[in-house]
């Protein structure tokens, strides 16, 4: 019996969320007295490093069918090794790719499934997991009662713990299932931090007046190593791409730091961002509802505050 964890990679590099998932699996394995097997699918550099985050064994599955992500093929291969290794728990990151796999893995393993998991399970009496519901407006505790459990872990929910050493990597050949879907191309936004995984997010709303003013937002984001986001009207007016829209009808995020500039803080916006650890609000209206959900606030005109803030951020990160 072992806890299996899928280590997702992109451009040959493991994602930060994969290290979180392995650390998470190691913690659960420690509690339940079992081991961790990390499964790497497709091309990725240095699979042995997964051991440093707590994997006892690493299985690597490769071949032309695994070169691009296909949820059917990846899920079937991961489920196959989980079955062979008699997995009791399978951990997958709650990313777009991870979620696409998780459902299929659960069906293949006849397992209970919980997505949006935000904390370690309580195994003192059953297997109780905490998951985000209502777009971050609340959490639910669900008891998973099947023999096998599949968990999709929300990025930035647990700390990465690096206290192991490089693991032995075993290549395993797994026959790829056939699929009627073929990936014909990808369009990656390079050089930008994906919003769902970012630790710091700089976000702006209608208070920025127009798309031409976003250079300040981007400059601050760059100085802080942050991803950029926006409110719904901003993406509706095509000032910014839809992929940046956060909130109840957009993306739900959970960064360590969320900086909201010129955003009023409507309930639908808060839903998507209120799980952020620290929230900073910059708004010229002292009565803006967002201040109630903030940890730090500045009442001021973004056009005056931002240049100074960018300056301060640049000199702080330079030192």
């Amino acid at each position: 019996m072992s806890i299996f964890v899928f280590a997702e990679s992109s451009d040959n590099q493991y994602k930060k969320s994969s290290f979180e998932a392995v650390s998470y699996a190691a913690e659960v394995a420690g509690k339940t007295g079992t081991t961790v097997t990390a499964v790497s699918i497709g091309k990725a550099d240095n699979a042995a490093q997964l051991g440093e985050y707590g994997a006892n064994t690493v299985i690597s599955i490769n071949g032309p069918a695994f070169d691009s992500f296909n949820s059917e093929i990846y899920a079937a291969a991961f489920a196959e090794v989980c079955k062979q290794g008699n997995a009791s728990v399978a951990v997958i990151s709650n990313t777009y790719c991870g979620k696409a796999m998780a459902g299929r893995v659960a069906v293949a393993l006849n397992a209970s499934l919980a997505s949006n998991v935000v904390d370690y399970p309580d195994t003192s009496n059953g297997f109780l997991v905490k998951r985000g519901v209502f777009s971050g407006k609340a959490f639910a505790y669900v008891n998973l009662t099947s023999q096998v459990k599949v968990l999709a872990l929300t990025p930035n929910s647990v700390e990465i713990k690096k206290n192991g050493s490089a693991a032995v990597v075993t290549s395993q050949s797994v026959a790829a299932v056939s699929s009627t879907c073929t990936v014909t191309g990808t369009n990656k936004i390079t050089g930008k931090i994906p919003l769902t995984e970012a630790e710091v997010v700089v976000s702006a709303g209608r208070g920025m007046k127009g798309p031409e003013n976003w250079n300040m937002v981007e400059e601050l984001a760059e100085a802080l190593g942050a991803a950029t986001a926006c409110s719904k009207p901003v993406s509706d007016m095509h000032w910014r791409p839809h992929s940046e829209h956060v909130g109840q009808t957009g993306i739900t995020i959970k960064p360590n730091l969320y900086i909201a500039i010129g955003i009023s803080g409507a309930i639908q916006h808060l839903a998507g961002v209120s799980s952020s650890k620290v929230i900073v609000v910059i708004n010229k209206d002292a009565e803006a509802p967002f201040f109630k959900a903030a940890d730090y606030g500045i009442v001021g005109d973004a056009f005056e505050v931002l240049p100074k803030l960018i300056q301060a951020a640049k000199s702080a990160t330079a030192s």
Binding site: A111, S112, F139, V142, S274, V281, D295, Y296, G297
Partner: peptide, 18 residues
């Protein structure tokens, strides 16, 4: 094999520091 047991609201913020 999935049983919802209970719900919880997020911790309210401690108050904003201006």
């Amino acid at each position: 094999g999935v049983e919802y047991q209970s719900f919880e609201l997020p911790q309210p913020k401690q108050g904003v520091r201006m």
